[in-house]
Amino acid sequence: MSIVEHHIDLATPRISEAEVADFIALLKPRVMSLVIFTALVGLVIAPVHVHPVLAFTSILCIAVGAGASGALNMWYESDIDALMSRTANRPIPRGRIAPQEALTFGMTLAFFSVMTLGILVNWIAGSLLAFTIFFYVVIYTMALKRWTAQNIVIGGAAGALPPVVAWAAATGSLSVEPFLLFLIIFFWTPPHFWALALFRSDDYARAGVPMLPVVAGPDATRLQILLYTIVLVVVAVAPWPLGYFDAVYGVTSLALGCGMLAFAINVYRRREGRKALRATRSLFAFSILYLFMLFATLLIEVVARAVAPSIW
């Protein structure tokens, strides 16, 4: 049963009343901001000088590509979005935008973002951006999300690719460093989204989305969150001893990792009542801060080296 009352009658022609703000909402601005930030880090840690105009073009194309993925995701998922309280206010279930408008909008942005990045920057970056959009929309949204509890594990690859695209845009090639950033986001995704799924499991169950807490239960999810967090902390610290990122990053990563682990252990231990709910919400919130701080450290290091190379 839908929790929103607005429906668009597709059988009769309608004149759109969609405003620009509705189309901006289709781009998932909050997800886009994280994509822009991680892509920016991938761009600035690349060991080459990138002209600011090309850097701006690359980040803009990656951001628009991410927005296109969001719009296509909302087009395909409008049926289940209407069933979940978290997503019921999105433009399509609210009746502001017709699914066909969202599809056209998403496809147009996807085409222009990929072609612009390919033509103006390079085709390795353009191809990677096209693959990212394809992976998020077709592999994650259409194939995995309604089929397997491992949806966000595999689908997380799409969210982890923006720094790789940005590195390719800067250098015209691929290397170990962007792959390390990819791995950090990839292993960060399960604890982050399963924490959300734990306190939104009723939503997902109503919509028939086989998220891990719905399929395997909350206790199994708590164990998986803890295991993935351990892997995440190791993967995030590893670039320091391996010599790819320096000690400032290493120590920050270790400190943040201890915090992430503490929140994950708290989620694992507290299984009942309000304390359990608070623990999952805390982990979800801290996981965002964790990723932001980790990437911000890399960004600050690069800026500090550029501003005061002798001190650094």
Partner: peptide
């Protein structure tokens, strides 16, 4: 015949 709301949103979209 477009309503005022439809005209306004169409103009907004055109500018965007």
């Amino acid at each position: 015949v477009l309503t005022e709301a439809q005209k306004k949103s169409r103009r907004q979209r055109s500018i965007a």
